[in-house]
Nucleic acid binder design. Sequence first.
DNA 1: TTGAAAGCGCTACCAT
DNA 2: ATGGTAGCGCTTTCAA
Lengths: 324, 324
Amino acid sequence: MSVATASRALNGLSSVTAKTRAKIEATAKELNYVPHSGARSLTRRQTDTIGVILPDLFGEFFSEIVRGIDRAVQGAGKNLLLGNMHGSPEQTGQAIRAMRGRVDGLLVMPPHSSAETLDQALTHGIPAVLLNARASDGATPFVAVDDYAGARLVTEHLIERGARHIVHIAGPASNRDARERERGFREALKEGLGIADPLVLPGDFREDAGRDAARYLLESGTRFNAVFGGNDIMAVDCMAELREASLAIGSEVLVAGFDDIPLARYVTPQLTTVHSDITRLGAAAAELLFRMLAGETPDAQDSLVIAPTLAVRGSTSGLFKSDK
Amino acid sequence: MSVATASRALNGLSSVTAKTRAKIEATAKELNYVPHSGARSLTRRQTDTIGVILPDLFGEFFSEIVRGIDRAVQGAGKNLLLGNMHGSPEQTGQAIRAMRGRVDGLLVMPPHSSAETLDQALTHGIPAVLLNARASDGATPFVAVDDYAGARLVTEHLIERGARHIVHIAGPASNRDARERERGFREALKEGLGIADPLVLPGDFREDAGRDAARYLLESGTRFNAVFGGNDIMAVDCMAELREASLAIGSEVLVAGFDDIPLARYVTPQLTTVHSDITRLGAAAAELLFRMLAGETPDAQDSLVIAPTLAVRGSTSGLFKSDK
DNA sequence: TTGAAAGCGCTACCAT
DNA sequence: ATGGTAGCGCTTTCAA
């Protein structure tokens, strides 16, 4: 048997006698032969692998998105090469370059708002889909969570539940999600209550920011009856602090967050928040990339914005007793 | 310039004139040349990539372990190929085979106790380190968390805090971690209190199991003053249920868990639990693998068992009022 | 110091 | 239906 025939048999090409194939398969098993996918990739000019480049993410988000990507990858019979990039745009470019020759396409989630730096690295090479970011030139397709819509959802909900003095704890200004959430908050407030300059406290998406915000609110004597935290962590900690000050969460003060981390359901009262299907985000991105690899050339039209949903829980479900 | 010289220059070999090198580097930049690592791997017979095969893990654990591995991989200038295997040992073997030619070594965390099936797949090929599992032949090095020691730690702590009627909610019998934890519990109890046949309730590491256990305890009128949940989820939910029955957690009944998930610190009272450095587990495994790839041939001696620590919190910190 | 050429393990084209 | 063989893009002897 020649290597050519063997290759054909093992790859299931039709032009092989059943007999020959059987013999080859038997021998392969006997020799415990396992194809060398590296070499295979080289000749076929296709690796059946996609690269994923993520920033140093916090637990929950990371595992969810990878799970989604993995699901799609698995379903397509492909492989997943993971390349973390810890922060800087240069590292990102570096990571992207290191993937050349190893992957057919890329899923990239840039840190912060450094989308521009990416373009170069991307435009120049292989197909790519951006995660939760837009390329500055608008050319690279992306899949993102609609932070703006989510923030509007919460804000409108708070208004509907009777809140009239709503405070927002913002995330870091360098973070696109944070900016979009704040924007959604502001617009919903303007449209709903006609408030143009609401109180927005600074935050960084970490626990302390929630506590600090709460203390500020209490000590400054600010009039407020609802807090919308830029993410759940801050909302939860703000809520804890307000509770310690004997405020009745859900009736005296409403609190809501964003992300729906598992914790949200475990605090008392449970936290109303915005739920995004992160797994779906990852899966959708991978599937979009596969379509590109299959020859389709999606434009910005194919980019997907995933609409989040509101998870209403105890922290906003009570009725208002008084307007503090 | 010949390709040979270019290769040498780009790879920083010394046998190249500074002048030649400069010229080559300039040209490379101009042409926007990026080396094709696939081809490079083929000739060098080294991919600088390690494969990671994990079962379908729950969020926290997954991200922590990957973070640890990634850290080590990053530090060593290598790449990380992720291959999830959803469950069955066959899939595992499959996943391992698919990695041939793509990676230099493997980090494998087998699902359940199917370590035997692995051996074949592993023995036959590339270097590998097992995560949280032992190979049946004892040959493959591994890195694992010491569940047994952790369980002893909690149990001894509960005894020391005055508990005399301690119940354990076990995890699934198919899970090695679960079995080891139960073993640690039983032995600590025998040694500490001379109890040989403690009450062990069945569980599956999920929320409901915690609630079911609590209900059983309450309804059956069982005498107990401490519960050691096989993991935090079950412990937390058991605690919630007991609290609803107006038991004072931490004083009337002690509750402890295992894993130290973030939630443990957010429930009221905070949950005493066993903390394992999962990130370190991943990093240690990767580093062990790198040593093997560098030529060392570690035996079982080099396997590492990571000792967990006890995180004492409110759920066991109160004093006993009565011996219910 | 540089260049020519032989592969790495496979696939795919061209013959037979 | 099968076999021979030319690469895939790189590294690495071996000569020059």
